[in-house]
Design a protein around this nucleic acid. Structure first.
Lengths: 338, 338
DNA sequence: CTGTTAGCGCTTTCAG
DNA sequence: CTGAAAGCGCTAACAG
C-alpha cells in the first residue's frame, strides 16, 4: 500500500456516504445515475461531496465497470510526418466523446508493438493500430480481448480503415497526360507495403489503359535521401515526369533536380503522395492527398461505435484520395533545339 | 458489470495461479518481486503467463497500490513539426521505465488544456506540459496534486526544461558576420512566446556587441504563409540575411525569395530555427538545432525521478542549442554592377 | 427511491 | 520461500 504523498486526504465514497447519512450506492448513483434518485438526495450528496472535495476515483470505477473511457493508438513512428495528422484526427474525436488516448510508438517493430498492446490492454476499452506490423494471428488474438480498429492494414474480419491512393494516383496520371507527358517514372516504396502495392498497381493498370509508359525506379527505404539518390536514374529513363511513392521521396527528387539546374515544372514534373509536407517548400508540391487526418477520425469514430454497440461487424472503410495540384507539375517541355 | 464483448477471455491472475498450481500471491510476486521467489517458481509462473497471454491488469494494480504507471503529455499541437520529436523522446524514456503515456492536444487553448489536465489527473502519476498556455496560478494548483514538469515554460518552483536557443542564435549570428553580413533581419514569432523572447533578446544583445544591425520583421502567427508574406518587407529592409523565428517561417521566406528569382544563398542567406524540417527541402536549411527530442527525454526522466524521490525540487534544466550549417547561408553577394 | 451484498483483479501484511 | 485473507474505491444486481 502507499502512501503519504499521492493519496493523502483524498476523500472516498464512504466518507461522503457517512456525512450524508446515506449508503455508498446512493452516493455512487448521485454521480452516475442521478435520475434514479430524488432531486433532494442528489443535491445533498453533491453538496457534501463538493464540501469535502470528493471526486469519484476513476481507477476504482474502471475496475468495477470495465469502462474507463480510454483508448490506445499505436503508430510505427510519431516523428514520421504521415502520422501526426492522423493522431490529431483520432484525438479530436476521442476528445469530443470524452475519451483519453494513450499513444504508443512501435518503432516499426512487431515486438515493441506487441508489448505496447499488452501494456495498454487492461487500461483501454479499445485500440487503433496504425500500419500494424503484427502478424494476423496476433491481431486476431488481441481483437478477441478488446475491440481493435486497423488503419492501413487489411485483415479480413477486423474493422479497418484503408487509405486508397488509387483514385488520387489515377487523377495524377490523367493530369500528367493532359499536360502531354507520355513517359512517366514511378519512384516506388517498400515492396511489402500495402500502400505501395496499391499505388503501383493503380498506376500500371491505368497507364496501360491510357497507352502511356511507366518506368519503375525504386527508392528504398522511402526517404528524402533515396529520392535524391534516384535522380540520376530517373533522368536517365528519359521520362518527363515522376510520381513518387511519398512526399519525402518527392522532395529528395526535387532536390536532386534543383541541384542539376533542371527547372520544375518547366523541364520536369513531380507528383508526391500523402500530402504531408503541405506547402512548406518551394515550389509547393503537387501531390496525392492521403487524408490522413480523416483516417484518424474515422478510425476513432469506428472504434467508439463498436464500443457502444458491442457487436463486432466486419467493416472495411476505404478512404479515397484525390490530387492536389500545386506548383511542381506543368506541360511537358518543348524539345531542345540547340 | 459488463459484459460479453470487452472483457471476454482476458486472463486473470487466478487462472494463471490455478494453472501453475500456486496461489495468486505467488503469481503477483513473480511479476513484482521475483527476488522473493525461487528461481524455479518464477520461471514456471512466467512461462504459463506467457502461454495464456496473461498481463497484469494495470487498473486493478493501480487500485491496490495507488500507482498506475501512467503519465500524461500535453502539447499545443501534435501536427506542428516541433512536437513529434519531443513526444518521441518522452515516450522513449517512459517506455523504458514501463510507463504508459497519455497524449493530449490543447489546440493552443488554455481552456482545453485545463480540461485535459482534469481528465488525466486521476489516471496518471504525473504530467508533462509542453509550452503550456495555462496561467501560473493554475499550473501551481495542479502541481500540488500531481508532479508536473514544464517544457518551454519558465515558472519558478515548478520543475522545467527549457530549450535555450540563445547559444545557437549567437553562433548563427557569428556565422553570418563571418560571411560578411552586416545588416540582418530577425523574422519574429509570437511576442508572448518564451522562445521568441529568448531568441530576440540574444540576437539583439549579441548584435550590439558585434556592431551589426538587426531589423525586426514580424511573422505572426509563425507559419509558412507568414514567412512568405514577409518577404517583401524583408527585402525592403536592405538586409543581406535573415534569421527566422522557426523553420516554417524560414521556408516561407525561402519560397518568397525563390519566386522572386533571388538565389539562396548566392544573393540572400536564410537561417531557420528548431531544425524540424531536416533536409527535406532544397536547398537544405541552415538552422539552429533545438534538440526537441532531448527535451522530451529530459522532461520524462525528470518527472519519473520526481515520482521516485517523492520530493519536489526546484529544477531548471536548460538545453543549449547549436547551429547546423547547411545550404542556405553563404558569403554576402558582391554589390550589383550593372 | 434507497440500502445490502458481492465482487472487479491485484497487492500485501501476516503466518506458516 | 509460499499461502490465506483483507482490502483498494466503486458499481451493480437484487431486494425492499
Amino acid at each position: 500500500m502507499d502512501d503519504e504523498t499521492s493519496r493523502r486526504r483524498v476523500p472516498t465514497i464512504d466518507q461522503v456516504a457517512a456525512l450524508a447519512g446515506v449508503s455508498r450506492a446512493t452516493v455512487s448513483r448521485a454521480f452516475t445515475r442521478p435520475e434514479m434518485l430524488s432531486e433532494a438526495t442528489v443535491q445533498r450528496v453533491k453538496a457534501i461531496a463538493r464540501d469535502v472535495g470528493y471526486v469519484p476515483n476513476q481507477v476504482a470505477r474502471a475496475l468495477s465497470t470495465g469502462r474507463h473511457g480510454n483508448l490506445a493508438l499505436i503508430v510505427p513512428d510519431v516523428a514520421n510526418p504521415f502520422f501526426p495528422p492522423l493522431i490529431r484526427g483520432a484525438q479530436l474525436r476521442a476528445d469530443e466523446a470524452g475519451f483519453c488516448v494513450f499513444l504508443g510508438n512501435s518503432d516499426e517493430q512487431a515486438g515493441r508493438e506487441d508489448m505496447l498492446v499488452g501494456r495498454f490492454t487492461s487500461q483501454v476499452e479499445g485500440m487503433i493500430l496504425v500500419s500494424s506490423r503484427l502478424d494476423e494471428e496476433r491481431i486476431r488474438l488481441y481483437a478477441e480481448r478488446r475491440p481493435i480498429v486497423l488503419v492501413n492494414r487489411d485483415v479480413a474480419g477486423i474493422p479497418r480503415v484503408l487509405i486508397d491512393s488509387a483514385t488520387g494516383i489515377i487523377a495524377a496520371l490523367a493530369h500528367l497526360i493532359d499536360h502531354g507527358h507520355r513517359r512517366i517514372v514511378y519512384v516506388s516504396g517498400p515492396s511489402a507495403s500495402w500502400s505501395n502495392q496499391q499505388r503501383r498497381l493503380a498506376l500500371r493498370r491505368e497507364a496501360a489503359k491510357r497507352g502511356v509508359e511507366i518506368v519503375a525506379v525504386p527508392a528504398r527505404p522511402p526517404t528524402y535521401e533515396a529520392g535524391y539518390a534516384a535522380t540520376a536514374q530517373i533522368l536517365a529513363s528519359k521520362a518527363t515526369a515522376a510520381l513518387a511513392f511519398d512526399d519525402l521521396v518527392a522532395q529528395g527528387l526535387l532536390a536532386g533536380l534543383a541541384e542539376r539546374g533542371i527547372d520544375v515544372p518547366g523541364r520536369f514534373s513531380v507528383v508526391g503522395c500523402d500530402d504531408v509536407l503541405g506547402t512548406t517548400t518551394y515550389p509547393p508540391l503537387t501531390t496525392v492527398s492521403a487524408r490522413c487526418k480523416e483516417a484518424g477520425q474515422v478510425a476513432a469514430d469506428l472504434l467508439m461505435d463498436l464500443l457502444k454497440v458491442k457487436a463486432m461487424r466486419d467493416v472495411r472503410y476505404v478512404l479515397e484520395s484525390h490530387l492536389v495540384v500545386r506548383g511542381t507539375t506543368g506541360p511537358v517541355a518543348p524539345p531542345d533545339r540547340p
